[in-house]
Amino acid sequence: MGDRILLVEDDEPLGSQILGHLRGAGFDAVWWREGRLLVAGELPDVSLVVLDLMLPGTYGLDMLKALRAFSEVPVLILSARNDTLDKVRALKLGADDYMTKPFWPEELIERVRARLRRPTLQKEPSVVEVGPLRIDLQGHAVQVRGRPVELTRVEFGLLAALARRPQEAVTRQWLVDHVLDPEREGTERTLDVHVSRLRRKLGPAKCVETVWGVGYRLVPGEDA
């Protein structure tokens, strides 16, 4: 048998068909019929998870969020929900791919194979230090030269997104799509307001740099 796949799908006929296609393609497939809020140690040793959203027990996105707290296993969402906001939420929470039902079984198998060919991302460091900044990504805490700085959820999300790619320009549109709430504040103008507030809170640490015509990047900075 090949790579082991976890299928989480409550629809019996569909789940049975997917299981058959996965096994027919040479995968070792395991089938769960309900969602579960997993903690470290409860996930089987699998190479990929195929996850439905509308599940009994635990909603699919809640399961994904819990899973991402301790595992970087690739997750392919398989759902009848075709709303753009559902796709955005799933990708923000750490999904690697999103397929809508109905689908061709051949496409599902090829997407699984494509995802398994890509190297699994290394788990990100819990703390990132850039110049005078110390950013605790897991603890959601920021310090400037040892001084705690209180940030809003969006401000921290913005700083964390830049910290994961230090000294690399991140486009304004990417930050809008991945940091801001698409239902309430998903515009570049709103993003610029958050950046301005973030800079004021960081004080003399001039670490958030504008890349004209592109977006922003995090640099070591310097004291004013």
Rank of each mutant, 00 (worst) to 15 (best):
R117S: 15
R118E: 15
L121K: 12
L121R: 10
K123A: 12
E124H: 04
P125N: 14
V127G: 15
V127N: 15
V128T: 05
E129K: 15
V130W: 08
V130C: 15
R134I: 09
R134Y: 09
D136Y: 14
Q138L: 08
Q138H: 14
H140D: 09
Q143M: 13
Q143I: 08
V144G: 15
R145D: 13
R145Y: 06
R145T: 06
R145P: 00
R145S: 14
R147S: 04
R147F: 06
P148D: 08
V149M: 10
E150H: 08
E150G: 03
E150A: 09
E150N: 01
F156A: 07
G157D: 07
G157A: 01
G157R: 00
A161G: 00
A163L: 07
R164D: 10
V170P: 01
T171Q: 03
L175F: 09
L175I: 12
L175D: 01
V176Q: 02
V176E: 06
H178M: 13
V179Q: 03
E183N: 01
E183G: 01
E183T: 04
R184I: 02
E185I: 00
E185P: 03
L191R: 01
V193I: 15
V193E: 11
V195A: 05
R200A: 15
K201H: 05
K201Q: 12
P204F: 05
A205S: 07
A205R: 04
A205W: 01
